[in-house]
Design a protein around this nucleic acid. Structure first.
Length: 267
DNA sequence: ATGGTAGGACACCTA
């Protein structure tokens, strides 16, 4: 089996479609998972993907906010978009692939960012994020999504390890690296048995980032990054993880997303 | 200690 899966929070797929097609031409992943597409399904720029050779798609969009999609060069056999926390937010889409892509199932998540104040009483958005992580864990226990040949990717909006942020100490009270979020994300990962594919090849203490704030005067010079985007694989696929690539260069492209693509090769 | 940027939609929300 040989299949490559990429994940990228694109921060508007319509605005940045030229960056996406550039990425697809240069890296040719079999499967690309997008978050923050920010458009309704009928507005998704499918023609551009088809032109680039990506004819298959599972889309779960909504107007203005959030939105996730899976596009692929390999046939999709079935797909499903789930809702969490009793909301209609478009934050999950999954696709099962045929033998051309090893028969894997891919789950694509966009976890709520959680606002600025790391207190669930004072900040409803942080409460939502914590509930979402709890529900992800329950979904992993009830549905056993990591049972076999499965991949979970996405903007999980948590940098769980000390070396997933530029300064563990200075980030302890910053949403995305507070202890409770890190615990809940690792609990969701562990309860289902997911293996962190990127860290299996780039173990701590190597610093790994996938996101740099738009607000930095010079993102590359200050390099205050966080690893918010993740690729997890089911235990049976863990030995097949042959390469992981974080496309830091994409942060320096013209009118970039604040996230960069993460690519994992299996087999 | 503070404010800094970006996108979508249309007043200000989300990130």
């Amino acid at each position: 089996m040989s299949v490559s899966v990429a994940t990228w929070n694109i921060n508007s797929v319509r605005l940045r479609i030229d960056l996406v097609t550039r990425f697809l031409e240069e890296h040719r992943p079999d499967i690309l998972c997008l978050q923050e597409t920010k458009c309704q399904d009928g507005q998704f720029p499918m023609a551009d993907f088809r032109k680039a050779g990506y004819e298959h798609a599972a889309i779960h969009g909504q107007k203005g906010y959030h939105g996730v999609a899976i596009v692929s060069r390999r046939p999709i056999v079935a797909s499903e978009g789930l809702h969490f926390c009793g909301k209609t937010d478009a934050r999950h889409i999954s696709a099962r692939f045929g033998p051309e892509a090893g028969g894997i199932t891919v789950h694509n998540f966009y976890v709520p960012a959680g606002g600025d104040i790391p207190d669930p009483v004072e900040n409803e958005k942080f409460a939502h994020k914590l509930s979402f992580l709890d529900e992800m864990k329950a979904w992993g226990t009830d549905r056993n999504p990591a049972g076999s040949k499965a991949v979970l990717v996405g903007d999980l909006n948590v940098a769980p390890l000390e070396t997933d942020v530029w300064s563990h100490k200075q980030m302890l009270k910053v949403v995305s690296h507070t202890p409770i979020e890190c615990e809940k994300l690792l609990a969701a990962q562990g309860a289902a048995g997911w293996v962190d594919a990127v860290r299996s090849l780039k173990p701590e203490p190597e610093k790994v980032y996938t996101w740099w704030s738009y607000r930095a005067a010079d993102w590359a010079a200050s390099d205050r990054g966080r690893r918010l985007d993740h690729v997890w694989v089911s235990p049976d696929l863990a030995p097949d993880v042959s390469r992981t690539h974080i496309l830091r260069d994409a942060r320096g492209w013209e009118r970039p997303s604040d996230h960069v693509p993460v690519i994992v090769n299996l087999g």
